[in-house]
């Protein structure tokens, strides 16, 4: 499956290039190669490929990247609607 772009224009990913120190860590951890290097700092390539896993933001020592992380799972979202964020889980039994 080559094209793994999901819904367009929904990702919460933002990058403040003025804070970026060019350490490249975000380009190593992104599982969809959304972040690339240009002129010594990171840039967002195809934002619609972002799945908001949060790896880049968590591993940015400069806090230049921000994203509201989470799991893209309908069963989980459904539970957050009905049970609230704390009680929600993905598995049927023995919550993960």
């Amino acid at each position: 499956m080559r094209n793994m772009t999901y819904l367009p224009g929904v990702s919460t990913l933002t990058l403040d290039t003025s804070r970026c120190n060019g350490c490249r860590t975000c380009t190593l951890v992104c599982p969809h190669a959304v972040l690339k290097m240009a002129n010594g700092h990171a840039v967002i390539g195809n934002r619609d490929d972002c799945m908001e896993c949060g790896a880049c933001a968590l591993n940015c020592p400069q806090e230049a990247l921000r994203v509201t992380p989470g799991v893209g799972c309908a069963a989980y979202v459904l539970q957050t609607w009905f049970k609230g964020k704390e009680a929600a889980c993905c598995g049927e039994s023995g919550c993960c």
Binding site: L7, S11, E52, T68, V71, A74, A75, Y76
Partner: peptide
């Protein structure tokens, strides 16, 4: 529901 098993769906999108 299959969104949860794929490696590319974002929570905002779902």
């Amino acid at each position: 529901n299959f969104t949860g098993a794929t490696p590319f769906t974002s929570p905002s999108g779902v």
